[in-house]
Nucleic acid binder design. Structure first.
Lengths: 341, 341
DNA sequence: TTGTAGGCGTTATCAG
DNA sequence: CTGATAACGCCTACAA
């Protein structure tokens, strides 16, 4: 019982259906070009043979893979999960397959993964944020691989982006919070090097400070990797500085929940003793105690629109158009007015 | 400036280096078969030309893709993230690329993804848990695609698995908790249909009940999808039943954190009024208030060992061997003795 | 150690 | 509407 029968090929189908391979190929890729009668016959034998096109052969001949690559900074938390899920659903409904990998927020890892994806013939790439070595964009341009950036929106950049304006989103939140009369402002940001989202969020807080009559240089800022633990540590450290901030803006919800824990450990009540805000509005923000005031990012919409636009860029061989999907403030319980001194 | 120069091919390299394509191919795939002198020369021209092998052509000719597919139930939380990260790192260091997709805990979606991955020529597959339609295993066997199961360990099943014994792990935790004198036991489980991990964890709790002199049929059980919200809802509902459980075992940490929130909303103190446990020990378990007593799963080790074993199965064309990596209890603050009645 | 040449499974062009 | 028949880029016996 050593059946080594190899999978059926286009040829097998053609022979069995009594047509040429070209016709079978058409039945699969361009059904309306084939007469009803032969199409039905071919499709039947395809089914009866259990034939599946060979992917490698197909992409070699067509010079297309119907594959799209996405490199996200992390899979360790849900920040990108919802958007990616939507991205992949849209892709799938259009006949594309998604290849994901995560760079762990490391520029060199991301670069290598970009090259791998290109070498594998990805028809297009989705990248998060704009910041990266210009050489990479050159490379991608030379290879003629369409690239779309998500989670950011910047109309002044050559690479098309679909997302939202991180700076003004954070500024809107900070405006609202500072209006409560906070005077000493702290911020726990993700590492801003090679991360325009993080940088823009910092800028947003500073914008609000300036607008609120504060000196942006007085911002107490700590940059750490995005993790619960780093959020807690940064918060603890920040609360020991003078002047002690009455509000701490966090670069994302994970950092904020870490900060919440830090407050608890220090016996500080939120928001009575100190206000804390997040960013992203992942499910965690609602589970936290107190629930987090944060910025709601259009996760699924970004994924869906990015898929549509990237496919359009590929199929219509045109350059992508950027789109600002906006973001909105979600007011919950982690923010209040500062304590009277 | 419409340079349509296509990427260099093996042929280009060969011509430029003054050797045959076979030699260039060897330099890439079997360097020690080529004399030092020509190898150096070829490698130089490869570099100067910026040559990258064409993936489709290579896999078509070699009938191998150096690609491994993994289908995980979800990317929405960190349950599988750490293990997958380790899996991918190991794969990468051995020259393989990982293709991930998530099934959203849906059997039919998983099946479709399996077929896609196979059609794309994945050299091997990593699946989570044993439970699935036997027809799928048949299909995979016919296609001669090596499959390894992770996050479960069951030596009595044909498909090799690398993970831990969910039943005895949960039992160990339950033994310890019930020994505190809990008499009314509740459990919030993930949906157990087509999910052996969930089923085994339930069985583990029942085992402990029986061993502790309780009637396993008295277990108050609710099955819900794994999410914070469902954890909260299930907990709230459960606490309104009679007899009210003094401890609630949760199928994973996400559910447990949801339950914690439910307790808070109901004004119940944990662990004074009710004990709650998790499973998996993701970072969240430590951030929760109170910190979660849970089961620590060997995330990274599973990923690493699974990669090694799967590659061995592929390259040595042998059947895989299962491995029990064990799990351990992590005692934190969410468990205490029951309140005196 | 190196070269020659056939073949891998599809798509696409061009006649018919 | 359908059928030959070149590519596509690389691997791998087999020969030298």
């Amino acid at each position: 019982m050593t059946d080594m029968k190899p999978p059926p090929t286009l040829d097998d189908v053609a022979r069995m259906a009594g047509v040429s391979t070209a016709t079978v190929s058409r039945c699969i890729n361009d059904p309306q070009m084939v007469s009803d009668k032969t199409r039905v016959r071919v499709q039947d034998t395809i089914k009866s043979l259990g034939y599946t096109p060979n992917f490698a052969a197909r992409s070699m001949a067509a010079k297309r893979t119907f594959t799209i690559g996405a490199i996200i900074p992390t899979m360790e938390n849900a920040i990108f999960a919802r958007g990616l899920q939507a991205f992949q659903e849209s892709l799938h409904s259009r006949g594309y397959t998604l290849l994901v990998s995560s760079s762990a927020y490391q520029a060199d890892a991301e670069e290598e993964q970009i090259r791998t994806l290109v070498a594998r013939g990805a028809d297009g790439l989705l990248l998060i944020g704009h910041d990266r070595d210009p050489a990479i964009y050159d490379y991608l341009a030379r290879q003629r691989v369409p690239v779309l950036v998500a989670w950011s929106y910047d109309k002044d950049v050559a690479t098309p982006s679909i997302g939202f304006d991180n700076r003004s989103a954070m500024r809107a939140l900070a405006d609202q919070v500072i209006a409560l009369n906070h005077r000493h402002i702290g911020m726990i940001s993700g590492v801003s090097r090679a991360n325009d989202r993080a940088r823009m969020r910092i800028a947003g807080v500073k914008d609000a400070m300036t607008a609120g009559g504060l000196d942006a240089d007085d911002l107490t800022l700590i940059e750490v990797p995005y993790s619960f633990r780093h959020g807690t540590e940064a918060f603890t450290q920040m609360m020991q500085q003078e002047p002690r901030p009455s509000v701490v803006f966090c670069g994302n919800d994970v950092l904020a929940v870490g900060a919440l824990r830090g407050a608890k450990q220090m016996g500080l009540r939120v928001p009575e003793d100190v206000s804390i805000t997040g960013f992203d509005d992942i499910e965690l923000a609602e589970v936290a105690q107190p629930e987090l005031t944060t910025v709601r990012v259009p996760h699924r919409k970004m994924g869906t629109r990015a898929a549509e636009e990237l496919i359009a860029m590929i199929e219509e061989k045109r350059t992508g158009v950027s789109e600002d999907l906006g973001a909105q403030i979600v007011t919950r319980q982690s923010v209040g007015p500062p304590k009277a001194p």
